[in-house]
Simulated assay, not measured.
Amino acid sequence: MYDSVLVPTDGSDHAARVARHALGLARWFDATVHVLSVVDVSATGGVFDAGGVSPAFVERLEDDAADAIERIESMADDDRVRSAVLKGSPAPTILEYAGDHDIDLIAMGTHGRTGVSRYVTGSVTERVVRQSDVPVMTARVTDRSEWTGGYDEILLPTDGSEAAAAAIDHALAIATRTDARVHVVSVVDVTTVAGRPTILAPNDILAKFESDAETAVETVAAAVRDAGLDVVTHVRKEIPSQGLLEYVDDHDIDLVAMGTHGRTGVDRVLLGSTTERFVRRAPVPVLAVGPDADGGSN
C-alpha cells in the first residue's frame, strides 16, 4: 500500500505530531520516509525592502530547515529516513517532490509556525490536500492526536460516490495492520437536500435520501466484513462536518479516512468542502484520499 511516505516539516509541533503517525505507518508497511523542509525565500523577502534578503538570512532559514528535519529524524529508530531541504513555494514544491520520488502518502500538520521565517502550514496543507494525487494524512496537536502505536477505532465516511470509495482500500489496509474496528457512517445533510439552509427537507424526500445513505453504508460495510474486520454502521441527519466531528467524539475514533470529493446536487453532500472543514477541526488524524489515488493492495 505505502512504499514511500513524505513528511514535510516547518519545525512546528504539529508537523512533529503527524510525523510520529507517518513513522508508525512506515514501519507497518516497510516504507521509506522522506522528510522535506521547504525554504520560501520569496515569501520571507517580501517583508523587507526591494533589495531582498541577505545571504546570511537565507543561510539562517536553511539552518532552521535543517533543524526541523533533524527533529523528525531523531524520532526514527532505523535508517529508513531520507531528507532534503529545498527552496521554493511550499505547496508546489511538496507536490513536485512527491511526484518526482513516487511518494505514496504525504503526512502534514494542519497548523504551523508563522512569521517571516516560516510558511503558514495551515494554508499549505489545504492546498496539498486539494491537489495531491496521493493520500494526505493531517494532524494537529490535540489531546487525542498522540501516536499510541496503533488505532482501535477508524471512521470511514461515505456518501455513496466513487470519490468517497477511494478511501476504502486505505482504511482497510490500515485497519488490518492494527486490527481496528471500522465505523462506516453516512451523513444526510437535512439543509442541503432542502435547497435552503433554513428549510428542512420534506419527510418523503428525506426518507429517500436516508434510504440511499443506508445502501451506501451497507455496501462499504460489506467490503469491511470481507476483509475480516469488525464494522459498525450509522446514518445521521446533520450538517456533515458537524455530524462527523460529533461522531468522532462520541465513539472515541482514533483515525478518520475519507474521500476529498463527492457527489454534488440536492441529493448528496459535497465531500470536498466537508473534508476541508473537517480537517481544520478534527481532534484526531485524518487521511484524505483524492479520487485519483491508487488504492494499491492491502
Rank of each mutant, 00 (worst) to 15 (best):
S4K: 15
V7F: 05
G11A: 08
H14M: 01
A15E: 06
A16L: 13
R17C: 02
A22D: 05
A31W: 03
A31V: 03
V33T: 15
V39N: 12
D49F: 02
G52C: 08
E59A: 15
L61K: 13
D63M: 08
A65W: 07
D79Q: 09
S83R: 14
V85M: 10
K87Y: 00
P90G: 03
P90W: 02
L105T: 11
G109M: 09
T110Q: 01
T110Y: 01
G115P: 06
R118Q: 03
G122N: 13
V124S: 10
T125P: 02
R130K: 13
P135N: 05
P135A: 09
V136C: 11
R144C: 00
S145A: 15
S145T: 04
E146L: 12
P157E: 10
A164V: 04
A166P: 01
A167Q: 12
A167S: 15
L172I: 14
R181Q: 11
V185P: 02
V187G: 04
D189S: 07
I199W: 03
I205N: 01
K208L: 12
E210N: 14
T215D: 15
T215Y: 00
A216H: 10
V220H: 04
V224I: 09
R225S: 13
L229I: 09
L229R: 13
I239D: 13
S241L: 00
S241P: 00
L244P: 06
D249M: 09
H251V: 00
L255K: 11
G259K: 13
T264K: 10
V266E: 05
V266T: 08
D267H: 13
G272E: 10
T274R: 11
T275K: 02
V279A: 03
A282L: 03
V284A: 04
P285Y: 04
D292S: 14
D292H: 13
A293P: 02
N298H: 12
